[in-house]
Write a protein that binds this DNA or RNA. Structure first.
Lengths: 217, 217
DNA sequence: ACCTGAACACCGTTCAAGT
DNA sequence: ACCTGAACACCGTTCAAGT
């Protein structure tokens, strides 16, 4: 019954993408992918040298799909913000993928489309050519770091979240006003790290773009 | 010979900190910690509900130690930059800790000292009180995300690094100039994600601070 | 009251043996 | 030529049994 079967690399990636999107992406594993394909884990190792290489390939497909739905529009700042939000949404709650993208970039067409759009937007902004590579680099580091961090936060279990929130409350509300005057003063206003993520993301990116703008001659 | 022995929570945390600092921090595990203590993994579960709680406790001690060596000095911007670099160095190459800190904050005194200093610096900057909580929040999200991302990058093996760099080179140098004109134009200048990390970190943080400054009435 | 051993339910990866 | 099974060296966590 277990007729053996050659899987194409693309079929493997399709299934991996599905598996990462549905269910809890944090627990994606080579073994689960093999089970979903109905094959043995070891057979995947002829297609990919290791798990990272597999995830990197999936990340590139996700970038590719995201860029298909993206049309450059508006000012250079609006374009970059839209792109960043688009990537944020594409990687969504998938910390493994976001981390892999942030760590190694990804080598395919998806990656190229992102690079191309960012470089063009910076040119459109009027940034001098010789400053573009370094500003581009900072921007990608920033966006990748924010997305990976956020995907991590959104993937924690409800139990862990409660635990963390409780500790945060204790730290803030229980702070000695003598030793931590500012903290005591703002105690009721200060928000835990995970709060209000989309707004935080957008304003940080926008803030950095404004900073770039200020440097344009 | 295996006399049994009660470990205090502090002794456990000391050993965990050592283990995370030395050797490859990425592979830190409860089992290795138990081995280092000469005890059984299961006995640690009376001190900590789970691995995350343990890591969070270690993270707080690291913040505490970092803040002991920190003296506020200079303008508010210099203070925040110095603090950010200090945290960056403290978490160093420990992606597990940096991630835990970024994900849940940490509930102890170390955490409080960091919050207090940031809040005070923002006050010293002249930011209106009602804007401080939200700006504080953005700043912590940004710093935590950058540190966690960087710790992740620095913890990859030489082999994975080479693999990633190679893929990046292929993506950039092999880009079709018709389809990716800007990428082809900047091919030789564009740098991979991991390059020049400290400078990227500092300039992104400084950029965001300049953005805050521009909003001060 | 505290700790241990054994077990459960997992990982990524390799490689000799099968078809 | 391709795939599989079994194995290796790990994980975090639980809980009955020991002292």
């Amino acid at each position: 019954m277990t007729g053996r079967r050659r899987w194409s690399t693309d079929e493997i990636l399709d299934t991996a993408e599905d598996l990462l999107r549905t269910s809890d992406a944090e627990s994606f594993s080579v073994r689960k992918l093999a089970a979903a394909l109905g094959t043995d884990p070891s057979s995947l190792y002829r297609h990919f040298r290791n798990k990272t290489e597999l995830l990197r390939a999936v990340a590139d497909r996700i970038l590719l799909a995201a860029m298909e739905g993206y049309r450059p529009d508006g000012t250079w700042k609006q374009r970059i913000t839209a792109l960043a939000l688009c990537l944020r949404e594409a990687f969504g709650e998938q910390p493994q993928l976001a981390t892999v993208w942030g760590r190694y970039a990804s080598g395919g067409t998806g990656s190229r489309l992102v690079m191309e759009e960012l470089l063009q937007a910076l040119r459109a902004a009027g940034v001098p050519d010789e400053q573009i590579p370094v500003l581009y680099h900072r921007l990608v580091v920033l966006i990748a770091a924010l997305i990976a961090a956020e995907a991590g936060v959104s993937s924690i279990t409800a139990e862990e979240y409660e635990q963390g929130l409780e500790q945060f409350r204790v730290a803030v509300l229980g702070a000695d006003p003598e030793r931590f005057p500012a903290l005591a003063f703002f105690a009721r206003e200060v928000r835990p790290l995970g709060a209000d993520r989309r707004a935080a993301f957008e304003e940080i990116v926008d803030g950095y773009l404004a900073q770039i703008e200020a440097q344009i001659p």
